[in-house]
Amino acid sequence: MLLKLSDVVSGYTDMDIIRGVSLEVHKGEIVTIIGPNGSGKSTLMKTIFGLVRLRSGKIEFDGVDISRLRTDKIVRRGMAYVPQERNVFPSLTVMENLEMGAFIRKDKFREGLEEVLTIFPELKDKTGQKVGTMSGGEQKMVAIGRALVLKPTLLLLDEPSSGLSPKLIDNLFKKLVSINELGTSLMIVEQNAKKSLTVSHRGYVLEMGMKRFEGEGKSLLTNEEVKALYLGG
């Protein structure tokens, strides 16, 4: 088991957003979490990554309790996170963005850089370009690249397809599958549920901060109730 959440409760100052969620990600899996707006998907991801305070419950990563660990310590253990918005450093170049991804392990940067450029060859000729001047699709590659530099065992992606054209979304999910094939497990939060569940091994449906359904990606896609409620019929 790579990631295991037990009865996680978390939220902001005086409001619980996540109200007792248990789920798991196995080594090598792609897991998608779907659910309507405001169901707490993003908050759940931030809680795992130590950006939102855990109120109760337990989070284990790779056999270690990371419930109260600081984000930089979690990164050191091999987890990475791509936020939905503001996920690049716009005034830094592509190369500098990737370097920031390896800030805590500079010795691993060269190696990681090569791998990122193998996955995203589109970035090869643009390493000196300021990311703020690039297209949305290119920025997304930089955002994912930054998180991939240290070869994380688990990559958390918050709405990776948001703001991309259908063609770019297809391309993105192909890349995500190839990242997974290279040995990184993925946990994806998605509005674009069909696309994401198609490539996922398993999926969860979150509603009002609680787990409503869980199952294999394809079985969730065909589940009548899930289809009617969350996949737009």
Binding site: F49, L51, T71, D72, I74, V75, R76, Y81, P83, R86, N87, V88, F89, P90, S91, L92, E96, E99, M100, G101, F103, I104, K106, R146, A147
Partner: peptide, 21 residues
Amino acid sequence: TIGKAMRALSDNIDLAKASGI
């Protein structure tokens, strides 16, 4: 690296945190 990290922080402090800086 520290100088680049300073620029990164001024760009987007949340992402800097999320990068483990």
